[in-house]
Design a protein around this nucleic acid. Structure first.
Lengths: 253, 253
DNA sequence: CGCATATTTGATAGATTTCAATTTATGTGG
DNA sequence: CCACATAAATTGAAATCTATCAAATATGCG
């Protein structure tokens, strides 16, 4: 890893490095991006539907949800973003947001101005490529979200979502298969993410033959990760995380 | 528009031009991409889950579905592609496909080899940007798909899908609001796209208070487009089609 | 303590799936 | 043009899942 003056964008760089190959100069350029620090309180939108953005939003800390909604006001969370993610990176090429971004927990957001990102992309193709690839992974996640909501029953949807988030948080089960991690969502938000009702989420969690996982005040606990993953029909390949399964690409040498 | 020797990639260029600004040289470079013509019969996969791609697939003619599936074999169509679309463009930066691509009608596909695409991207940043933007629109469509499947009832889901496809096909209603267009899908495939059962799709289409639209052997007919759009909770902005609503961007001058 | 938010529970209505069977298209070879 | 095979559309009845509405119980926080 690159030695460099402390920057809050380290996590973003680590995310990119996991999937793309960047030179030292390129890495430094990313860390040198100008930022504005912004604290966002829980349940507060930090941008809204129809808004035109002039910056992208790096999540330094906290949990963020992308909220879409129907004309009748029903809400659907179509993506979750955690520390290290850059929601709205694509706003560089598509500035008008068709959705709202909301902090599910208190968040620290680093706003990266579009002009700086544009200059960086224009000056360095490898970085543009890494950004594009990052976006492509987000799209894969989105496609799996469609499958989850469209073709699985309630219990399985919930289990799958928990598995995905555990994996993205890099939470590892212990030797006995037990796993604990933080997921700062209410059952209502879980419902918005899975296309269910909060009542039904509650029941699925509590049912006699439930998912065998405890979800309480933002903490997920399971005694059997493998069982949860099986119930949740979960295969992590689409997240393109963990050890490199395919050689990292670099179009530009 | 650019004067140039005939190329089958004209539709792709037109698609890109609708959203990005490309110089004449850049446009010509796209039209000059090498292609392999491939005919794909109805219901035939032209690539499968887990396959590593060495080319992207331009749809010259026909209807294509992206099929994801659960471990139990339930199928979910998470995207549809029509003439002018380039499904798997992102395979340039992400070659391993986590899904299958299937021809819903007999298709003519132009395979564009990755090496040529890579060279083009490496040599021209504005094109890389246009590709990224094209992908970003696909991601917007995907997010709306999540909302559709997650938060709308059957009838509305179907109506919304029909509206989306009509809009993407640029099918215009006549002065009386009537609209007819081809959508080469069976009711079963419509079910796979909307997260429903073929039986239920059939009933929603036939119900006394149905969507007022006739869907038969690949032809969609409605007598009242506005009504369908309203029922389907449809707002086309996310498709970023039609007259430019925001100034087209170009990061690189 | 008292408000605000989140969780839990019950009862009921409604939507959707499942399974099974029938009818209607569509295509193909004789 | 008919007979056959196949795929698609349609219908019925019953089971199941999920939503809705309303109320009660926790939980956190100032």
């Amino acid at each position: 890893m690159l030695q460099h003056a402390p920057s809050n964008l380290n996590g973003f760089l680590a995310r990119l490095n996991g999937r793309s190959v960047l030179s030292e100069d390129e890495q430094r350029a990313i860390l040198d991006l100008p930022i504005r620090v912004k604290q966002v309180r829980q349940n507060q939108d930090f941008f809204s539907l129809g808004e035109t953005l002039d910056h992208s939003c790096y999540v330094l800390e906290g949990l963020v949800g992308r909220f879409d909604q129907t004309a009748h006001g029903a809400r659907q969370i179509s993506a979750l973003y955690i520390r290290g993610d850059m929601p709205g990176l694509e706003s560089v090429v598509q500035p008008t947001a068709g959705f709202a971004m909301q902090a599910l927990s208190t968040c620290t957001i680093l706003e990266v101005p579009h002009p700086a990102l544009r200059a960086l992309i224009a000056a360095n193709q490898a970085i543009a490529e890494a950004f594009w690839r990052d976006n492509a992974v987000d799209a894969s996640i989105l496609a799996q979200w469609v499958v989850n909501v469209g073709r699985r029953e309630a219990k399985v949807r919930i289990a799958h979502l928990l598995c995905e988030m555990a994996t993205r948080y890099c939470a590892e089960p212990d030797e006995r298969g037990r796993l604990v991690f933080q997921l700062a969502m209410t059952q209502g938000q879980l419902a918005d993410a899975t296309g269910l009702t909060s009542v039904h989420v509650n029941r699925s969690l509590k049912a006699p033959r439930a998912i065998g996982t405890n979800f309480h005040s933002g903490t997920v606990r399971t005694d059997d990760w493998d069982m949860l993953a099986k119930l949740g029909d979960f295969d992590s390949v689409y997240l393109d995380t963990g050890p490199a399964s395919e050689p990292r690409l670099r179009l530009i040498q």
